[in-house]
Design a protein around this nucleic acid. Structure first.
Length: 458
RNA sequence: GACCCUAUCGUCUAGCGGUUAGGACACCGCCCUUUCACGGCGGGUGCACGGGUUCGAUUCCCGUUAGGGUCGCCA
């Protein structure tokens, strides 16, 4: 824990460009920054790098804010909404680069006056040192960045375009400087560029912040994850029914370990364990299987109330509005799915049938198979269930088993058609509990529907 | 082309000179069972390669290979 008396307080930032979506790798970068701020008792800032004004929209910024909030990452300073012109929270604003043009102009003039930068064909170029730059990095170690062959030809680089727009390297450094950033935690793709940033800081007469370049997240096959790849957007995990705590936990496990053979570690606990030097140096591949498992673990320990809330949202995405049903029915129905699903989209298979008048069958073959089932067995089963009293899981189970015994068939011969007739699927929650929830009326209706259909091929 | 980073099961990782190389996901059997899932038991799979250093290398050094990144008037 940093001592505020002797050390300056940690100030870190996440500085995304509003491109219309939040990259999963960017989300992890934000997470690591947030963790470090919370671990040290420092500040976590959010800054929007919207210098490319033509492409950036307020909606694109909202995507970032929504994503971070969904993950549970709150920022101490930064924008409150996607409106770049609105006031943000904090003393170092504006937190949108599009609103900081004057700061950049003054800094560039300052460099120009001292000959640290010069005009070239309408643009402004920065005089880069010809010597190798040493980059001290908390994760990677000390990196000596030699010039590439192209840089040997001309090491200077453009900091203001001929149209007057300042470029990324410049504004990024000025903002970090003016916002008092102490640690720059960002993707390793910026490591080589850091030499430029360090040189810029020194030109402005200040020592650069400490750097921590974290490894990248790759696709499961080891290729780099681009915007096009499925699963590259945080939004896709929201839409596919993952719980934010599971996604956050999984992201922590990529490039960092809580040690002690632990996998499931709540974010609040990670805050205490997390630190920069123990971050791994190699890239990690994103394993959807493991996220899926972890999500299931979180669902298991989730409160029934929260499970119902998230499950209802997933059903709504399927066009099923559970609020139109009686609250007790909805609760009982969703509760039968809680120990079954690992991902909220799976409620499609485990609970959607409770709320549909006309069943959707998993596939046409299943429907045909059901219609071709032995009508005599189904009829006997229907009649037995019609007499069950009182109607609950226990009594219906007894009735099904008794009917099987009476007919001299295995219980599976009845259970299978019954499940498909009631749910449209071969997989689902505990059958007898589902029967109890559905109620005798719905169950008999669904069995009667089967019995009324013409037998295929007959 | 140049420069930078990296390298433990298929994947995420523990390991920081001497271990039967541990855990998790995934996978394969068996048990449980009304389906699926859970749970229980069991199983296989790994230190990229080649040189050093050392009594001894997964661990330290060098090289090779492979993967990733950067060298823009993109961010």
């Amino acid at each position: 824990m940093a001592n505020s008396q002797t050390e300056k307080q940690v100030r870190v930032r996440f500085a995304p460009s509003p491109t219309g979506f939040l990259h999963i790798g960017g989300a992890r970068t934000a997470l690591f920054n947030w963790l470090y701020a919370r671990h040290t008792g420092g500040k976590f800032l959010l800054r929007i790098e919207d210098t490319d004004a033509a492409r950036n929209t307020q909606e694109a910024v909202e995507v970032i804010l929504t994503g971070l909030r969904w993950l549970g990452l709150d920022w101490d300073e930064g924008p409150l909404t996607g409106d770049a012109t609105a006031a943000g929270k904090g003393e170092c604003g504006p937190y949108f680069q599009s609103q900081r043009g004057e700061n950049y102009r003054q800094r560039v003039a300052w460099l120009l006056e001292r000959g640290l930068a010069y005009e070239h064909e309408g643009a402004v170029k920065f005089r880069m040192p010809r010597e190798p730059v040493i980059i001290p990095d908390l994760v990677v170690g000390k990196v000596t960045r030699e010039l590439t062959d192209r840089e040997r030809l001309d090491p200077d680089f453009v900091i203001v375009r001929s149209d007057g727009q300042p470029v990324f390297h410049l504004v990024n450094v000025i903002d970090d400087l003016e916002m008092g950033i102490t640690h720059v935690i960002r993707g390793e793709d910026h490591l080589s560029n850091t030499a430029k940033h360090i040189a810029l800081f020194r030109a402005f007469g200040v020592e650069p912040p400490q750097y921590a370049h974290i490894p990248l997240i790759l696709n499961i096959d080891g290729s780099k994850m681009s915007k096009r790849d499925k699963g590259a957007s945080l939004l896709s995990y929201i839409e596919e029914g993952f719980a934010p705590e599971a996604v956050a936990n999984y992201l922590c496990l990529l490039g960092w370990s809580p040690k002690g053979n632990r996998e499931m570690v709540p974010l609040a606990e990670v805050v205490g364990l997390f630190d920069l030097p123990q971050i791994l140096r190699h890239n990690a591949r994103f394993d959807l299987n493991k996220l899926h498992w972890l999500n299931g673990e979180y669902i298991k320990v989730m409160s029934p109330e929260r499970f119902r809330e998230l499950a209802a949202q997933a059903l709504l995405r399927l066009g099923i509005d559970t609020s139109r049903f009686e609250a007790g029915y909805v609760r009982a129905a969703l509760d039968t799915a809680k120990q079954k699903v690992k991902q909220f989209n799976e409620v499609k298979h485990f609970a959607a049938f409770y709320f549909r008048d006309n069943l959707e069958f998993d596939n046409e073959a299943l429907r045909t198979e059901l219609l071709a089932a032995d009508r005599k067995l189904v009829t006997k089963l229907r009649d037995a269930l019609a007499l069950v009293a009182p109607w609950d899981a226990k009594t219906s189970e007894t009735a099904v088993k008794a009917t099987a015994t009476e007919l001299g068939v295995k219980i599976g011969a009845l259970v299978h058609p019954l499940r498909v007739a009631c749910s449209g699927s071969t997989v689902g929650p505990s059958l007898y509990h589902a029967l109890e929830v559905l109620g005798r009326e719905r169950v008999l209706q669904r069995l009667d529907w089967v019995l009324q259909q013409p037998v295929p091929g007959a």
